[in-house]
Design a protein around this nucleic acid. Sequence first.
DNA 1: GACCAGGCACATC
DNA 2: GATGTGCATGGT
Length: 232
Amino acid sequence: MPRPTQKILLAYYRAMHNRWGNQHWWPAQSRTEIMVGAILTQNTSWRNVEKALANLKSANLLPPNRQPHAESNSIRTLHALGVARLATLIRPAGTYRIKARRLWNLLDWFVTHYDASFARTRRTPTPNLRAALLALHGIGPETADALLLYAFHRPAFVIDTYTLRIFHRHHLLPPAAAYNDAQALAQRLLPADIPLWNDYHAQLVQVGKTFCRTHPHCAGCPLQKFLPQTPS
DNA sequence: GACCAGGCACATC
DNA sequence: GATGTGCATGGT
């Protein structure tokens, strides 16, 4: 197995970026909307997440912008709604009873420990923030890292099923490697550049959505030229 | 109908 | 530690 290098991973990024341009993730008007979306998108198509977010926007429950005061107000209002009311609003996203509980857990933690203020999270080191998120019921590694990167603007490389599949198929990782291995690889090799990590993950999702959904469908993929001789 | 989607927790072995 | 299953809507 050729040992992956920073040069190789940056070449992957250039190929994807050349193809699609910057993805401008996370698509949302506010950091609050990112937090909500991160829960809603768990094992769910983004299309269905958008329906649920539209419900919340229609009810004026998401901030119109990223002004801290607007963010905090929305966080507190969503929190005050309670699980049952949240559940009816987010229903189109699927697994809505579970997600309402998970979202409320996250909101409750944010209100309790940071007074619903993103600014107040600044003094918490990233590893501590990650551990706190992982301790919440319903937040696993991918959701925690997506929140860290896209909502809290911390250096966390997000791994998802597409990323794992691509890394495995390209033999960048041994077959048994899992989430933490993939993240360690990316974080060790890539420069600690939050905008790069932001768009890198978005590009990998774009590759996955476009080319990985049906199993051997690599024709036209911007990463195809990097595939090893004997694809798995 | 089956299968999947920008996961996670839990049961069981 | 590894594997299997429920959650649930909406698109293909």
